[in-house]
Amino acid sequence: MNPTCFARYMSKYLTEYLPGIQGVSYNTIASKRDAYILLLKYLDDTQNIKAEDVDIPLLSRETIIKYLEWLEKSRGSSVSTRNIRLAAIKSLFSYIQTQTPDYIYQCQQILSIPRKKEPGHTLEYLTVEGIKSVLNAVETSSRTGLRDLTLLSLMYDSAARVQEIADLSVNDFRAEKPSTLRLTGKGSKTRIVPLMSTTSDLVSKYISIYHPSYRGEYNVPLFSNRKKEKLTRAGIAYILKKYVKIAREKQPDLIPEIVSPHGLRHSKSMHMLQAGVPLIYIRDFLGHSEISTTEIYARCDSEQKRKAIENTCPSITKSETPMWQKDTSLLGWLQSL
């Protein structure tokens, strides 16, 4: 069977162009690959077109739009996920139009598909007391409990992305004071973040129990499951969800409805901001490339806004109750209007 043009270009894009020319990370390639797998599944399920028969002429602008609608309606994907899948398709067709001029018009038609506007959402994060509640829910009398407490404490203290935690090796941790953690983020960029002494001591104890024979080898996963394989994103989310549920049962007022691994990153960022750490330092701590990305925390911190306004603006509102409020008949008349 001869490969179609689409199969050939997609293969070269994923295996040669992205890793070799653009130098993107494996996780970025995997995300794009998943979008293409879903597109092929959509064509098979809805139009009975097998993957080996899919070619560029079949992938019209209308087909891609229907695929995006299918993602939302049939798979229940969010608008954000829809836009991520669209971006992956656009990047592929942007590459295809540079490789063959035969389909340049069709490629430009697909590239003109607009992103769908995402609904606004509030930034979910835990208070300091909420973080303590989740950590206190971990029973540390077992090996697994020690691992989970170390994992959650490190996620919060380092404000790491969940994939950065999953990818940690034992040699990424430095126990010597001042203790640090090396994180590898988006685009394979690394950064060094400081750790609190209590977190550092906890990680050291964990390593002594889980990696007693470690002698400085590289690529030894810091956190692993029962099969000795490194924890996945889903595995980490499952661990957090378990203790969030326990904490919510004990102190429901402290735990928001939704708490995700990324929520611990948001929580640490907000707590740093509330403690007076400048945004530019928080940006570097989080590994953001632009300060505008970090500014979302300043916009969400209503308590800090209130304090800033109180410190800079004089209070001119009278605190005493106006005398006319004692006239119940007047109040009754006004309320009846």
Rank of each mutant, 00 (worst) to 15 (best):
Y9A: 02
Y9K: 05
Y13N: 03
E16D: 15
L18Y: 03
L18H: 02
N27M: 02
R33N: 13
I37F: 13
T46S: 14
L58Y: 10
T63Q: 12
Y67M: 04
E69S: 12
G76P: 04
R85L: 08
F93D: 11
I96W: 01
Q97W: 04
T98Y: 06
P101H: 11
P101E: 14
Q109V: 01
K117W: 09
E118C: 07
L123C: 09
K132D: 12
S142G: 01
G145F: 09
L149H: 11
D157R: 08
A160I: 00
R161K: 13
V162C: 04
L168Y: 04
F173P: 13
S179Q: 14
S197C: 00
T198K: 15
Y206H: 07
S208Y: 12
Y210V: 10
S224D: 02
T232V: 11
T232C: 13
L240I: 06
Y243F: 05
E257M: 07
V259F: 06
S260Y: 08
H262Y: 10
L273S: 09
Q274D: 10
G276I: 06
V277F: 04
Y281H: 14
D284V: 06
E290I: 02
I291W: 12
R306V: 12
K318R: 11
T321K: 07
W324E: 13
K326L: 12
K326C: 00
T328D: 06
L330A: 13
